[in-house]
C-alpha cells in the first residue's frame, strides 16, 4: 500500500513539475488564500485582547496546529473528496480494473505540491506563535502528538466525505461542510462556540481532539465545559476510532458501488 502510494504520488509529482510556472502560482495561491484566515484572526485581535478567553498567541497556536494537521491530511488524502467526479466521468471504473487499492489510487490522483502552500503557511504561524507562548518543556511533547492525531482525524474525515459520495454522487459539496468546515471550526478556541456544538464535536465528530483538548493540556487551561481531565490525552483514541469508522465506511461504499454501478 505505502509503496504503491509513494510510487503513484512520485509519478504525478514529476508530471506536475513539467509546468513549473503553473505550479508556483498554485503554491502561492494556496498560501495566500489560507493566509486570509490568519489575517482575519489578526484583525479581530486589533479590536480585542482576548477571544473566548484566549489571547492572540494562544489562538494562533490553535490555528497553527489545526491548519498543519489539515494541510498534511489534505496533501496526503484530500483528493479522496473528488470521488463523485471520478464516478461520473467513469474513471473510477478504470481504477477498479487495476490491481491496486482504489483508495490509494484516488488519494494520489493528480498529486501535486500545490497543497504545500498551506503547509508552509501553517508552519510560519506556528513558528511565530510557539516562542511567544513560552511553553514549559515538560508539556511540549504533546505538540507533535496532537498534530499527528489531527492528521489522522482529518484524513478520516476526508475519507468519510469520500465514502459519502458513493451515496450522494450528485452533491459532493456536502463533504466540504465536514472537511473544510472542520478546518474552520478548529481554527478558533472551541470556547467561542455554543455548548451543544462543542459537545457534538467532542463526542460525535471528534474534531475537539484535533487541537482543542490537547491544547488545554499544553496551555494548562481549565475546560470551560468542565469535561473530564483525561480527555486531554484521548486524542490518539479518538483518532483511532474515527479512522476505523472511515475505513469501514469506505469499504461499505465500494461494496455499494459494485452493487449499483452506473
Amino acid at each position: 500500500m505505502v509503496r504503491t502510494y509513494l510510487l503513484l504520488a512520485w509519478t504525478w509529482l514529476r508530471a506536475s513539475a513539467q509546468y513549473p510556472v503553473s505550479l508556483a502560482m498554485m503554491v502561492l495561491g494556496s498560501f495566500a488564500v489560507n493566509a486570509l484566515d490568519v489575517a482575519a484572526i489578526w484583525i479581530i485581535f486589533q479590536h480585542t485582547g482576548s477571544l473566548g478567553g484566549f489571547g492572540l498567541a494562544e489562538v494562533m497556536f490553535l490555528y497553527g496546529t489545526a491548519d498543519m494537521s489539515f494541510a498534511l491530511a489534505d496533501t496526503l488524502f484530500g483528493n479522496v473528496d473528488r470521488l463523485s467526479h471520478h464516478i461520473r466521468s467513469g474513471s473510477f471504473d478504470t481504477m477498479l480494473i487495476r490491481p491496486a487499492s482504489a483508495f490509494v489510487q484516488m488519494a494520489t490522483d493528480r498529486f501535486s505540491v500545490h497543497r504545500f502552500g498551506r503547509l508552509a503557511q501553517s508552519a510560519v504561524v506556528l513558528g511565530i506563535a510557539l516562542p511567544r507562548l513560552g511553553l514549559p518543556w515538560e508539556r511540549t511533547w504533546m505538540v507533535p502528538l496532537m498534530i499527528a492525531c489531527g492528521v489522522v482525524i482529518f484524513a478520516a474525515i476526508f475519507t468519510l466525505g469520500g465514502a459519502l459520495q458513493f451515496l450522494l454522487t450528485d452533491a459532493p459539496e456536502v463533504a466540504n461542510a465536514f472537511t473544510y468546515g472542520g478546518s474552520a471550526l478548529t481554527q478558533y478556541p472551541l470556547s467561542v462556540y455554543g455548548e451543544q456544538l462543542v459537545r457534538g464535536v467532542t463526542f460525535v465528530v471528534p474534531l475537539a481532539f484535533v487541537n482543542w483538548q490537547p491544547a488545554l493540556y499544553v496551555l494548562d487551561r481549565p475546560d470551560p465545559l468542565g469535561l473530564p481531565y483525561w480527555l486531554r490525552f484521548a486524542a490518539p483514541l479518538a483518532a483511532l476510532l474515527l479512522a476505523l469508522a472511515a475505513a469501514l465506511a469506505w469499504r461499505a461504499g465500494i461494496r455499494r458501488y459494485r452493487s449499483t454501478g452506473s
Partner: peptide, 17 residues
C-alpha cells in the same frame, strides 16, 4: 448546506468578538 454550516461557525466567532 455547506454555506449554512460555515454561517453558524463564523457567527459564533463574531458573537464572541
Amino acid at each position: 448546506f455547506t454555506n449554512s454550516v460555515f454561517g453558524i461557525l463564523r457567527a459564533y466567532v463574531l458573537i464572541a468578538l
